[in-house]
Design a protein around this nucleic acid. Structure first.
Lengths: 196, 196
DNA sequence: CTTACAGTTGATTGATCATTCAACTCAGGG
DNA sequence: CCCTGAGTTGAATGATCAATCAACTGTAAG
Protein backbone atom coordinates (compact mmCIF):
# COMPACT_ATOMS: atom_id res chain seq x y z
CA UNK A 1 0.00 0.00 0.00
CA UNK A 2 1.13 3.55 -0.57
CA UNK A 3 -0.94 4.77 2.33
CA UNK A 4 2.30 5.12 4.24
CA UNK A 5 3.78 7.10 1.41
CA UNK A 6 0.86 9.46 1.54
CA UNK A 7 1.20 9.90 5.29
CA UNK A 8 4.87 10.74 4.83
CA UNK A 9 4.14 13.33 2.14
CA UNK A 10 1.41 14.95 4.21
CA UNK A 11 3.57 15.09 7.30
CA UNK A 12 6.41 16.56 5.27
CA UNK A 13 4.11 19.12 3.68
CA UNK A 14 3.02 20.35 7.07
CA UNK A 15 6.52 20.40 8.52
CA UNK A 16 8.13 22.11 5.53
CA UNK A 17 5.50 24.80 5.82
CA UNK A 18 5.91 25.16 9.59
CA UNK A 19 9.68 24.95 9.89
CA UNK A 20 11.04 25.10 6.37
CA UNK A 21 12.81 22.40 4.40
CA UNK A 22 16.26 22.60 5.92
CA UNK A 23 15.06 22.73 9.49
CA UNK A 24 12.82 19.71 9.10
CA UNK A 25 14.66 16.49 9.83
CA UNK A 26 13.80 13.10 8.46
CA UNK A 27 13.20 12.10 12.06
CA UNK A 28 10.62 14.90 12.36
CA UNK A 29 8.79 13.59 9.31
CA UNK A 30 8.90 9.99 10.52
CA UNK A 31 7.62 10.94 13.95
CA UNK A 32 4.70 12.91 12.58
CA UNK A 33 3.89 10.32 9.93
CA UNK A 34 4.26 7.40 12.32
CA UNK A 35 6.66 5.61 10.02
CA UNK A 36 10.17 4.21 10.08
CA UNK A 37 13.13 5.49 8.20
CA UNK A 38 13.28 2.37 6.06
CA UNK A 39 9.78 3.01 4.80
CA UNK A 40 10.61 6.55 3.81
CA UNK A 41 13.71 5.44 1.95
CA UNK A 42 11.73 2.69 0.34
CA UNK A 43 9.58 5.31 -1.37
CA UNK A 44 12.05 8.17 -1.70
CA UNK A 45 15.72 7.91 -2.65
CA UNK A 46 16.57 11.00 -0.59
CA UNK A 47 15.08 13.86 1.38
CA UNK A 48 14.89 16.06 -1.68
CA UNK A 49 12.56 13.60 -3.38
CA UNK A 50 10.16 14.04 -0.47
CA UNK A 51 10.27 17.76 -1.23
CA UNK A 52 9.52 17.05 -4.88
CA UNK A 53 6.52 14.95 -3.89
CA UNK A 54 5.30 17.75 -1.61
CA UNK A 55 5.63 20.30 -4.42
CA UNK A 56 3.75 17.97 -6.77
CA UNK A 57 0.99 17.69 -4.19
CA UNK A 58 0.76 21.47 -3.94
CA UNK A 59 0.68 21.69 -7.71
CA UNK A 60 -2.18 19.25 -8.07
CA UNK A 61 -4.02 20.90 -5.20
CA UNK A 62 -4.03 24.43 -6.52
CA UNK A 63 -7.40 24.17 -8.24
CA UNK A 64 -9.31 21.85 -5.91
CA UNK A 65 -7.84 23.00 -2.62
CA UNK A 66 -7.18 26.71 -3.21
CA UNK A 67 -8.92 28.23 -6.20
CA UNK A 68 -12.21 26.33 -6.29
CA UNK A 69 -13.06 26.98 -2.61
CA UNK A 70 -11.96 30.60 -2.88
CA UNK A 71 -14.01 31.25 -5.99
CA UNK A 72 -17.15 29.39 -5.01
CA UNK A 73 -20.08 31.73 -5.58
CA UNK A 74 -17.85 34.42 -7.03
CA UNK A 75 -18.40 34.87 -10.73
CA UNK A 76 -16.93 38.26 -11.50
CA UNK A 77 -13.41 37.55 -12.78
CA UNK A 78 -11.79 40.66 -11.32
CA UNK A 79 -13.47 40.08 -8.00
CA UNK A 80 -12.01 36.59 -8.08
CA UNK A 81 -8.53 38.07 -8.12
CA UNK A 82 -9.15 40.03 -4.94
CA UNK A 83 -11.14 37.28 -3.28
CA UNK A 84 -8.11 35.04 -3.71
CA UNK A 85 -5.87 37.69 -2.19
CA UNK A 86 -8.40 38.02 0.62
CA UNK A 87 -7.95 34.33 1.30
CA UNK A 88 -4.25 34.86 1.93
CA UNK A 89 -5.21 37.70 4.23
CA UNK A 90 -7.40 35.29 6.16
CA UNK A 91 -4.54 32.76 6.35
CA UNK A 92 -2.45 35.43 8.03
CA UNK A 93 -5.20 36.13 10.56
CA UNK A 94 -5.96 32.46 11.22
CA UNK A 95 -2.31 31.62 11.85
CA UNK A 96 -1.55 34.76 13.85
CA UNK A 97 0.81 36.05 11.13
CA UNK A 98 2.66 32.78 11.07
CA UNK A 99 1.46 32.02 7.58
CA UNK A 100 3.77 32.21 4.65
CA UNK A 101 3.00 31.05 1.15
CA UNK A 102 4.66 27.63 1.23
CA UNK A 103 5.86 27.91 -2.34
CA UNK A 104 7.29 31.40 -1.85
CA UNK A 105 9.05 30.37 1.35
CA UNK A 106 10.59 27.31 -0.27
CA UNK A 107 11.54 29.34 -3.35
CA UNK A 108 13.59 31.68 -1.20
CA UNK A 109 14.92 29.02 1.15
CA UNK A 110 16.32 26.65 -1.44
CA UNK A 111 19.35 28.62 -2.48
CA UNK A 112 20.89 26.18 -4.91
CA UNK A 113 17.83 24.48 -6.21
CA UNK A 114 18.21 21.19 -7.96
CA UNK A 115 16.69 21.52 -11.43
CA UNK A 116 13.90 19.13 -10.45
CA UNK A 117 12.99 21.28 -7.45
CA UNK A 118 13.19 24.57 -9.30
CA UNK A 119 11.07 23.16 -12.10
CA UNK A 120 8.34 22.31 -9.61
CA UNK A 121 8.51 25.71 -7.92
CA UNK A 122 8.12 27.32 -11.34
CA UNK A 123 5.20 25.03 -12.13
CA UNK A 124 3.42 26.11 -8.96
CA UNK A 125 4.00 29.80 -9.60
CA UNK A 126 2.92 29.41 -13.21
CA UNK A 127 -0.26 27.59 -12.29
CA UNK A 128 -1.13 30.40 -9.89
CA UNK A 129 -0.40 33.24 -12.31
CA UNK A 130 -2.01 31.25 -15.11
CA UNK A 131 -5.26 31.15 -13.16
CA UNK A 132 -5.06 34.90 -12.58
CA UNK A 133 -4.35 35.43 -16.24
CA UNK A 134 -7.56 33.59 -17.09
CA UNK A 135 -9.47 35.97 -14.83
CA UNK A 136 -7.88 38.92 -16.58
CA UNK A 137 -8.75 37.47 -19.97
CA UNK A 138 -12.35 36.98 -18.86
CA UNK A 139 -12.44 40.64 -17.85
CA UNK A 140 -10.58 41.88 -20.90
CA UNK A 141 -13.26 44.42 -21.81
CA UNK A 142 -12.72 46.13 -18.46
CA UNK A 143 -8.97 46.43 -18.95
CA UNK A 144 -7.00 48.41 -21.50
CA UNK A 145 -6.82 46.55 -24.78
CA UNK A 146 -3.04 46.70 -24.89
CA UNK A 147 -2.48 45.44 -21.34
CA UNK A 148 0.11 42.66 -20.93
CA UNK A 149 -2.06 40.15 -19.09
CA UNK A 150 0.77 37.79 -18.22
CA UNK A 151 2.80 40.63 -16.74
CA UNK A 152 -0.19 41.86 -14.78
CA UNK A 153 -0.86 38.37 -13.45
CA UNK A 154 2.75 38.05 -12.31
CA UNK A 155 2.36 41.43 -10.66
CA UNK A 156 -0.61 40.12 -8.70
CA UNK A 157 1.51 37.21 -7.44
CA UNK A 158 4.27 39.69 -6.63
CA UNK A 159 1.84 41.77 -4.58
CA UNK A 160 0.66 38.70 -2.67
CA UNK A 161 4.12 37.32 -1.92
CA UNK A 162 5.59 40.68 -0.99
CA UNK A 163 2.57 41.55 1.13
CA UNK A 164 2.63 38.24 2.98
CA UNK A 165 6.38 38.53 3.58
CA UNK A 166 6.03 41.94 5.17
CA UNK A 167 2.91 41.08 7.16
CA UNK A 168 4.63 38.04 8.65
CA UNK A 169 7.64 40.09 9.59
CA UNK A 170 5.69 43.01 11.02
CA UNK A 171 3.17 40.66 12.59
CA UNK A 172 0.56 43.01 11.26
CA UNK A 173 -1.92 43.08 8.40
CA UNK A 174 -1.01 46.66 7.66
CA UNK A 175 1.71 46.09 5.02
CA UNK A 176 -0.40 43.42 3.35
CA UNK A 177 -3.47 45.62 3.28
CA UNK A 178 -1.38 48.54 2.07
CA UNK A 179 -0.04 46.50 -0.84
CA UNK A 180 -3.40 45.10 -1.83
CA UNK A 181 -5.13 48.47 -1.64
CA UNK A 182 -2.46 49.93 -3.92
CA UNK A 183 -3.01 47.02 -6.29
CA UNK A 184 -6.74 47.63 -6.20
CA UNK A 185 -6.14 51.29 -6.90
CA UNK A 186 -4.04 50.27 -9.90
CA UNK A 187 -6.83 48.05 -11.18
CA UNK A 188 -9.25 50.96 -10.80
CA UNK A 189 -6.90 53.12 -12.84
CA UNK A 190 -6.76 50.41 -15.51
CA UNK A 191 -10.54 50.12 -15.53
CA UNK A 192 -10.87 53.88 -15.92
CA UNK A 193 -8.35 53.85 -18.75
CA UNK A 194 -10.26 51.02 -20.46
CA UNK A 195 -13.43 53.05 -20.60
CA UNK A 196 -11.86 55.66 -22.79
CA UNK B 1 40.77 43.93 19.08
CA UNK B 2 37.40 43.39 17.57
CA UNK B 3 38.90 42.92 14.13
CA UNK B 4 38.19 39.24 14.55
CA UNK B 5 34.63 40.04 15.47
CA UNK B 6 34.28 42.04 12.29
CA UNK B 7 35.70 39.23 10.18
CA UNK B 8 33.22 36.83 11.74
CA UNK B 9 30.27 39.13 11.04
CA UNK B 10 31.37 39.71 7.44
CA UNK B 11 31.86 36.01 6.83
CA UNK B 12 28.47 35.27 8.37
CA UNK B 13 26.82 37.98 6.30
CA UNK B 14 28.12 36.46 3.10
CA UNK B 15 27.25 32.91 4.09
CA UNK B 16 23.74 33.71 5.33
CA UNK B 17 23.11 35.39 2.02
CA UNK B 18 24.58 32.52 -0.01
CA UNK B 19 23.19 29.56 1.90
CA UNK B 20 20.68 30.94 4.36
CA UNK B 21 20.88 31.05 8.13
CA UNK B 22 19.96 27.47 8.96
CA UNK B 23 22.22 25.92 6.36
CA UNK B 24 25.24 27.91 7.47
CA UNK B 25 27.15 26.14 10.20
CA UNK B 26 29.34 27.77 12.80
CA UNK B 27 32.18 25.80 11.26
CA UNK B 28 31.43 27.42 7.88
CA UNK B 29 31.66 30.86 9.44
CA UNK B 30 34.87 30.04 11.28
CA UNK B 31 36.48 28.62 8.16
CA UNK B 32 35.63 31.66 6.07
CA UNK B 33 36.56 34.10 8.82
CA UNK B 34 39.74 32.28 9.72
CA UNK B 35 38.82 32.12 13.37
CA UNK B 36 38.32 29.53 16.07
CA UNK B 37 35.11 28.60 17.72
CA UNK B 38 36.24 30.01 21.03
CA UNK B 39 36.69 33.44 19.47
CA UNK B 40 33.20 33.40 18.04
CA UNK B 41 31.69 32.38 21.35
CA UNK B 42 33.78 34.99 23.08
CA UNK B 43 31.95 37.70 21.13
CA UNK B 44 28.57 36.04 20.62
CA UNK B 45 26.64 33.99 23.17
CA UNK B 46 25.04 31.91 20.43
CA UNK B 47 24.61 31.59 16.69
CA UNK B 48 21.51 33.77 16.72
CA UNK B 49 23.51 36.69 18.09
CA UNK B 50 25.71 36.48 15.03
CA UNK B 51 22.55 36.83 12.96
CA UNK B 52 21.56 39.87 15.00
CA UNK B 53 24.94 41.44 14.36
CA UNK B 54 24.60 40.73 10.64
CA UNK B 55 21.16 42.35 10.57
CA UNK B 56 22.52 45.36 12.43
CA UNK B 57 25.28 45.64 9.85
CA UNK B 58 22.75 45.56 7.03
CA UNK B 59 20.70 48.18 8.82
CA UNK B 60 23.60 50.57 9.21
CA UNK B 61 24.69 49.92 5.63
CA UNK B 62 21.43 50.77 3.95
CA UNK B 63 22.27 54.42 3.31
CA UNK B 64 26.03 54.27 2.69
CA UNK B 65 26.18 50.91 0.91
CA UNK B 66 22.88 50.77 -0.96
CA UNK B 67 21.03 54.06 -1.30
CA UNK B 68 23.88 56.55 -1.64
CA UNK B 69 25.65 54.67 -4.44
CA UNK B 70 22.36 53.97 -6.20
CA UNK B 71 21.23 57.57 -6.05
CA UNK B 72 24.51 59.24 -6.89
CA UNK B 73 23.82 61.75 -9.65
CA UNK B 74 20.10 61.03 -9.60
CA UNK B 75 18.13 63.95 -8.25
CA UNK B 76 14.60 63.32 -9.38
CA UNK B 77 12.89 61.62 -6.43
CA UNK B 78 10.62 59.38 -8.50
CA UNK B 79 13.48 58.38 -10.72
CA UNK B 80 15.34 57.42 -7.54
CA UNK B 81 12.67 54.86 -6.77
CA UNK B 82 13.12 53.13 -10.10
CA UNK B 83 16.88 53.50 -10.10
CA UNK B 84 16.94 51.61 -6.83
CA UNK B 85 14.76 48.89 -8.29
CA UNK B 86 17.09 48.84 -11.28
CA UNK B 87 19.94 48.11 -8.90
CA UNK B 88 18.19 44.95 -7.73
CA UNK B 89 17.72 44.03 -11.36
CA UNK B 90 21.45 44.39 -11.85
CA UNK B 91 22.12 42.21 -8.78
CA UNK B 92 20.07 39.47 -10.43
CA UNK B 93 22.07 39.76 -13.63
CA UNK B 94 25.43 39.94 -11.87
CA UNK B 95 24.72 36.85 -9.78
CA UNK B 96 23.10 34.87 -12.59
CA UNK B 97 19.71 34.96 -10.83
CA UNK B 98 21.24 33.70 -7.64
CA UNK B 99 20.56 36.99 -5.90
CA UNK B 100 17.88 37.26 -3.31
CA UNK B 101 17.29 40.23 -1.04
CA UNK B 102 19.10 39.04 2.09
CA UNK B 103 16.53 40.58 4.40
CA UNK B 104 13.60 39.13 2.51
CA UNK B 105 15.17 35.70 2.40
CA UNK B 106 15.91 35.72 6.10
CA UNK B 107 12.44 37.07 6.85
CA UNK B 108 10.87 34.06 5.17
CA UNK B 109 13.42 31.54 6.40
CA UNK B 110 13.21 32.32 10.11
CA UNK B 111 9.88 30.77 10.85
CA UNK B 112 9.73 31.33 14.59
CA UNK B 113 11.69 34.50 14.89
CA UNK B 114 13.03 35.48 18.24
CA UNK B 115 11.71 38.96 19.07
CA UNK B 116 15.22 40.40 18.77
CA UNK B 117 15.59 38.97 15.26
CA UNK B 118 12.14 40.03 14.10
CA UNK B 119 12.71 43.50 15.45
CA UNK B 120 15.82 43.82 13.31
CA UNK B 121 14.12 42.47 10.20
CA UNK B 122 11.38 45.05 10.72
CA UNK B 123 13.97 47.80 11.21
CA UNK B 124 15.60 46.92 7.90
CA UNK B 125 12.31 46.85 6.02
CA UNK B 126 11.25 50.10 7.65
CA UNK B 127 14.49 51.85 6.77
CA UNK B 128 14.04 50.80 3.16
CA UNK B 129 10.41 51.85 2.88
CA UNK B 130 11.16 54.99 4.89
CA UNK B 131 13.69 56.05 2.28
CA UNK B 132 11.15 55.41 -0.48
CA UNK B 133 8.58 57.38 1.45
CA UNK B 134 10.95 60.34 1.51
CA UNK B 135 11.21 60.16 -2.25
CA UNK B 136 7.45 60.11 -2.53
CA UNK B 137 7.18 63.09 -0.21
CA UNK B 138 9.72 64.99 -2.30
CA UNK B 139 7.60 64.29 -5.35
CA UNK B 140 4.31 64.98 -3.65
CA UNK B 141 3.20 67.50 -6.25
CA UNK B 142 3.38 64.80 -8.91
CA UNK B 143 1.24 62.37 -6.95
CA UNK B 144 -2.41 62.62 -5.96
CA UNK B 145 -2.79 64.76 -2.86
CA UNK B 146 -4.66 62.05 -1.00
CA UNK B 147 -2.20 59.26 -1.71
CA UNK B 148 -1.10 57.14 1.27
CA UNK B 149 2.64 57.53 0.91
CA UNK B 150 3.54 54.92 3.49
CA UNK B 151 1.29 52.36 1.82
CA UNK B 152 2.74 53.19 -1.57
CA UNK B 153 6.27 52.86 -0.24
CA UNK B 154 5.45 49.44 1.19
CA UNK B 155 3.99 48.54 -2.17
CA UNK B 156 7.30 49.41 -3.82
CA UNK B 157 9.09 47.06 -1.43
CA UNK B 158 6.46 44.43 -2.16
CA UNK B 159 7.07 44.77 -5.88
CA UNK B 160 10.83 44.41 -5.40
CA UNK B 161 10.64 41.39 -3.10
CA UNK B 162 8.00 39.61 -5.14
CA UNK B 163 9.81 40.37 -8.37
CA UNK B 164 13.14 39.13 -7.07
CA UNK B 165 11.53 35.98 -5.70
CA UNK B 166 10.00 35.07 -9.04
CA UNK B 167 13.05 36.04 -11.07
CA UNK B 168 15.26 33.82 -8.91
CA UNK B 169 12.88 30.92 -9.27
CA UNK B 170 12.34 31.33 -13.01
CA UNK B 171 15.99 32.15 -13.52
CA UNK B 172 14.78 34.94 -15.74
CA UNK B 173 14.41 38.70 -15.56
CA UNK B 174 10.98 38.46 -17.13
CA UNK B 175 8.84 38.26 -13.96
CA UNK B 176 10.90 41.01 -12.33
CA UNK B 177 10.63 43.26 -15.35
CA UNK B 178 6.94 42.50 -15.63
CA UNK B 179 6.34 43.52 -12.03
CA UNK B 180 8.39 46.68 -12.26
CA UNK B 181 6.79 47.75 -15.53
CA UNK B 182 3.36 47.32 -13.96
CA UNK B 183 4.53 49.38 -11.02
CA UNK B 184 5.81 52.06 -13.37
CA UNK B 185 2.50 52.02 -15.18
CA UNK B 186 0.77 52.54 -11.84
CA UNK B 187 3.02 55.49 -11.06
CA UNK B 188 2.18 56.95 -14.48
CA UNK B 189 -1.51 56.59 -13.66
CA UNK B 190 -0.94 58.34 -10.35
CA UNK B 191 0.98 61.13 -12.05
CA UNK B 192 -1.82 61.58 -14.56
CA UNK B 193 -4.38 61.68 -11.76
CA UNK B 194 -2.31 64.26 -9.89
CA UNK B 195 -2.44 66.63 -12.84
CA UNK B 196 -6.18 66.90 -12.63
C1' DC C 1 58.33 41.77 37.89
C1' DT C 2 53.38 40.96 38.94
C1' DT C 3 48.73 41.02 38.26
C1' DA C 4 44.85 41.11 35.40
C1' DC C 5 42.14 40.42 31.75
C1' DA C 6 40.64 40.61 26.84
C1' DG C 7 41.23 37.62 23.22
C1' DT C 8 42.57 33.07 21.25
C1' DT C 9 43.28 28.12 20.72
C1' DG C 10 41.39 23.70 19.34
C1' DA C 11 40.09 19.40 21.29
C1' DT C 12 35.90 17.75 23.10
C1' DT C 13 30.97 16.94 24.07
C1' DG C 14 26.62 15.01 23.25
C1' DA C 15 22.94 15.79 20.23
C1' DT C 16 21.19 15.33 15.86
C1' DC C 17 21.72 14.74 11.00
C1' DA C 18 20.65 11.92 6.46
C1' DT C 19 21.23 7.59 5.04
C1' DT C 20 22.03 2.43 5.06
C1' DC C 21 21.00 -2.25 5.73
C1' DA C 22 20.12 -6.91 7.10
C1' DA C 23 16.39 -9.09 8.88
C1' DC C 24 11.56 -9.45 8.99
C1' DT C 25 6.25 -9.69 7.66
C1' DC C 26 2.83 -10.78 4.72
C1' DA C 27 0.03 -11.40 0.58
C1' DG C 28 -0.49 -13.74 -4.03
C1' DG C 29 0.91 -17.02 -7.54
C1' DG C 30 2.36 -21.42 -9.02
C1' DC D 1 4.09 -25.38 0.47
C1' DC D 2 7.39 -22.59 -1.22
C1' DC D 3 8.83 -18.61 -3.74
C1' DT D 4 8.85 -13.77 -4.81
C1' DG D 5 8.84 -9.21 -3.91
C1' DA D 6 6.68 -5.07 -2.06
C1' DG D 7 6.61 -2.99 2.24
C1' DT D 8 8.38 -2.57 7.08
C1' DT D 9 11.38 -2.58 11.09
C1' DG D 10 14.76 -0.17 13.88
C1' DA D 11 19.50 -0.43 15.10
C1' DA D 12 23.71 1.26 13.26
C1' DT D 13 26.87 4.47 10.72
C1' DG D 14 29.70 8.28 10.23
C1' DA D 15 29.23 13.03 9.41
C1' DT D 16 28.20 17.30 11.16
C1' DC D 17 25.95 20.21 14.37
C1' DA D 18 26.08 24.14 18.13
C1' DA D 19 28.25 24.91 22.11
C1' DT D 20 31.83 24.30 25.97
C1' DC D 21 36.03 24.71 28.30
C1' DA D 22 40.53 24.68 30.31
C1' DA D 23 44.71 26.17 28.87
C1' DC D 24 47.28 29.61 26.54
C1' DT D 25 49.02 34.45 24.56
C1' DG D 26 49.85 39.27 24.41
C1' DT D 27 49.42 43.54 26.41
C1' DA D 28 48.94 47.17 29.52
C1' DA D 29 48.70 48.99 34.08
C1' DG D 30 50.70 49.30 38.77
Amino acid sequence: MSETRERIVMAAMELFWEKGYGSTSIADILRKAGANSGSLYHFFPAKQDVLNAVLDTYFHGIRPMLLDPAWEGVDDPLERVFVLLGRYRQFLIDTDYFYGCPIGSLALEIHEPDPAVRERLVANFSAWTGAIEECLAAASERLPADIDRKALAQFVLTAMEGGVMQARTHRSLEPFDASISQLRNYFDCLAAAAER
